[in-house]
């Protein structure tokens, strides 16, 4: 009886994993088909791969612009997040001052506050900033607002992750550096940061992945087509697809959104999974 259950459960796991592979393969193949093939022979390989789907998604549907916007915003925001989080986490993790404990908790509270409690004031605030800059300098770019907000919303988790990480580093190195007369800044930059590199990279990847997929804030803060992030551009393409029914082109768009994450995942997957379980391990 128990054996049967285990066997059923195992086949279930295999089936699940296999259908995930199948789905992603199906998306990839569909992205190379023309509209008639998509419905007439949904399971067949594309008769002749239509790479033109990608071309049209990239240029006509502005996925290309979206891609560049996303890369720039996500890269800048992730790097800034880690640059702000690392020194703070270093101090919070390695010093037992009276404020360190409460501050660590205070940052962690941010992980429990849903975005919905924050977006309305943020929307109004960014509107005001944009208006002010346009009035005084005649220029503002909403992508800057999005970038700054992305940093703020990524900080709590990064600080939480890195504080735990800095806590685990052995204190001897730091003490040795102090004995050798290195200043606090130097010790941090030359000794602690290199030691913390695995943690920093994990925090960076997790930030990149979550910001790459973020859509709500982008929908709110970015209005003009040419400034859309990638998920926004995909939604735009989905909308026009209602009239053109160019499913192949739409799925090319899906692949453009998904592929970078899959590449990062196959390359650094174990790190992503480790990083995401850290919170639960404590």
């Amino acid at each position: 009886m128990s054996k049967l259950l285990v066997r059923t459960a195992r086949s279930f796991v295999w089936l699940w994993a296999a259908s995930n592979v199948f789905l992603f393969a199906w998306i990839a193949f569909t992205s190379l088909k023309d509209s008639r093939e998509v419905f007439d022979s949904p399971l067949n390989l594309p008769a002749s791969p239509r790479w033109g789907n990608y071309e049209s998604a990239w240029t006509v549907s502005q996925m290309g612009e979206g891609f560049l916007n996303s890369v720039a915003i996500v890269a800048a925001a992730s790097v800034t997040t880690i640059a702000l989080a690392a020194p703070a986490a270093y101090m919070l993790g390695r010093r037992d001052t009276r404020t360190a404990g409460p501050l660590t908790t205070f940052f962690a509270v941010g992980m429990g506050i849903p975005l919905q409690a924050v977006i309305i004031p943020i929307f109004v605030l960014t509107q005001k900033v944009s208006l002010m800059f346009s009035d005084t300098f005649g220029w503002w770019d909403d992508r800057i607002s999005l970038y700054v907000i992305y940093v703020a919303m990524s900080l709590p988790f990064s600080i939480f992750l890195l504080t735990g990480f800095f806590r685990t580093l052995p204190p001897e190195m730091e003490e040795a550096a102090a004995l050798d007369g290195a200043g606090g800044l130097r010790t941090f930059a030359k000794i602690m940061l290199p030691l913390a590199q695995p943690g920093l990279i994990t925090a960076l990847i997790l930030t990149v992945v979550s910001l790459w997929n973020e859509t709500l804030l982008a929908l709110m803060l970015i209005v003009e087509n040419d400034k859309y992030t990638l998920p926004q551009a995909l939604l735009g393409l989905y909308q026009t697809m209602q009239y053109t029914s160019n499913w192949g082109g739409l799925f090319a768009g899906v692949v453009i959104v998904v592929l970078p994450i899959i590449i990062i995942y196959t390359w650094l997957g174990s790190r992503i999974m480790e990083g995401m379980t850290v919170g639960a391990g404590k």
Binding site: L84, L103, I149, M153
Partner: peptide
């Protein structure tokens, strides 16, 4: 720096 950003734009 982290605290200011967090306070001003999140908390």
């Amino acid at each position: 720096p982290a605290l200011v950003v967090y306070l001003a734009l999140f908390f």
